[in-house]
């Protein structure tokens, strides 16, 4: 069994109003050093595959079909055994 960790993030060209709102709140908290905030999604999947390469392939297919909308989102996969 492999554990897949997926980060889904808005493409850099896309405005992230949630990130902006969080950034604004952090500024109000006095954390002026924080220059930018982008909010995405973190998804964990348990995958039954014969090796890490196969697990990655399965998760890639999950991402392109459902977990991410590639019109506006990018995704990054990490596979752990």
């Amino acid at each position: 069994m492999y554990k897949a960790k997926v980060n889904v993030t808005l493409r850099p060209s896309i405005l992230d109003p949630k990130g902006k709102a969080a950034h604004h709140a952090l500024q109000n908290l006095g954390l002026k050093e924080v220059q930018q905030v982008r909010i995405g999604k973190f998804i964990e999947l348990d995958v039954d595959a014969k090796d890490a390469a196969e697990a990655k392939k399965i998760v890639e297919s999950a991402c392109t079909q459902l977990l991410a909308n590639e019109v506006m989102e990018d995704f990054e996969i990490t596979i752990e055994s």
Partner: peptide, 16 residues
């Protein structure tokens, strides 16, 4: 949009 019958995507309203 998700089904790909029309192009594009929906994001959260600008002012959330």
């Amino acid at each position: 949009l998700e089904a790909g019958l029309i192009p594009g995507a929906m994001m959260h309203n600008e002012k959330l």
